[in-house]
């Protein structure tokens, strides 16, 4: 499997309170990779390191087969970037912003840009400072898409947008991906949004990568189990016990990772009985994962 982004042993420090250590991250080519993490976990910093906007203290970053920061202009020419905060020159009009952006990208698709302007209902004569947050979000996405990138790096692209605009922006993104087989790296704390569109997920917390796996494995692997007469000590379980909570009477609720149906035999072996297996959605799984990471159970 080839990787559009390959980060190894990345080390970066910002001040005394924040550090990224030994970060390894691999984004498969052609995947829609959701990069999850709570606020302040280091997602934006990782994105900026990936695009050469910040200099790491150690480690290697390879994007689209080229090395960061050495080959950064070549990488950026093939990468569409939507940052967390609007970054465009707000004194320009929409039309001027399009013309300015276009000259830097040899792959710029002017025809498609014009189509997207119409689709997003953007007024070409309007100054960027007069655009609403939703319109600015659409413009940022338009600029990233119309340069026909091989890799799209989106840092909280729909944060603060209303549901209609969010749907428009994501629809344009998915259209593009289906046509071009581009790789998308989308950083967000909006778990449900990523759950719908991503096929890979990476979870970051406190500057460390907590998990990185296919979305399906992530969603299927974390379950909540209702267990009657549970053992005091679980012993060698074929799954990872993330949490145990006391229930009514002699029952408990276990949150586990790596669950598969045949593992129910374990409970018979320890004199317990499995009453129910509950699927967790991505958000619940995400929360449990972070809880385990922050309070390891040994």
């Amino acid at each position: 499997m080839s990787h559009a982004v390959d980060i190894r042993d990345l080390h970066y420090r910002a001040g005394k309170n924040f550090e990224i250590r030994e970060l390894g991250l691999r984004v498969p080519t052609g995947s829609l990779y959701g990069f999850l993490g709570p606020n302040g976990s280091g997602k934006t910093t990782t994105v900026r390191l990936m695009l050469g906007l910040l200099r790491p203290l150690g480690g290697t970053i390879t994007v689209l087969g080229a090395s960061v920061p050495r080959d950064i202009p070549r990488i950026l020419a093939r990468t569409g970037y939507v940052p967390e905060q609007p970054h465009l020159y707000t004194t320009l009009t929409v039309d001027e912003a399009l013309r300015f952006h276009a000259v830097f990208y040899p792959t710029w698709d002017g025809t498609w840009a014009n189509e997207l302007v119409g689709h997003f209902q953007l007024d070409r004569a309007r100054r960027l400072s007069q655009l609403s947050k939703g319109e600015m979000g659409k413009l940022e996405m338009l600029l990233a898409l119309a340069q026909r990138p091989e890799l799209l790096v989106l840092d909280e692209p729909t944060d603060g947008l209303d549901p209609v605009v969010r749907r428009d922006v994501l629809a344009a993104l998915l259209d593009y991906v289906s046509q071009q087989n581009a790789t998308v790296f989308i950083s967000s704390h909006l778990v449900h949004e990523l759950e719908r569109i991503c096929d890979w997920v990476g979870v970051m917390d406190r500057g460390r990568l907590v998990a990185e796996l296919p979305m399906q494995s992530f969603k299927n692997g974390i379950k909540r189990l209702r267990v009657a007469n549970p053992p005091a000590l679980p012993g060698d379980t074929p799954f990872v016990v993330l949490a145990r909570e006391a229930g009514n009477g002699a029952s408990e609720t276990w949150t586990v990772r790596g669950w598969q149906a045949p593992m129910s035999q374990y409970f018979e072996g320890v004199g317990a009985s499995l009453r129910e297996v509950i699927d967790l959605d991505l958000e619940e799984g995400f929360v449990e994962l972070l809880r385990t990471f922050r309070e390891p159970r040994g």
């Binding site: 202009p73 970037y81 905060q85 970054h87 020159y89 707000t90």
Partner: peptide, 17 residues
């Protein structure tokens, strides 16, 4: 001034040295 306002993110993300 425009680059300072955007914390230089736009200029730095353009594909030129």
């Amino acid at each position: 001034s425009a680059d300072h306002r955007g914390r230089h993110v736009y200029a730095l993300s353009l594909p030129i040295p």
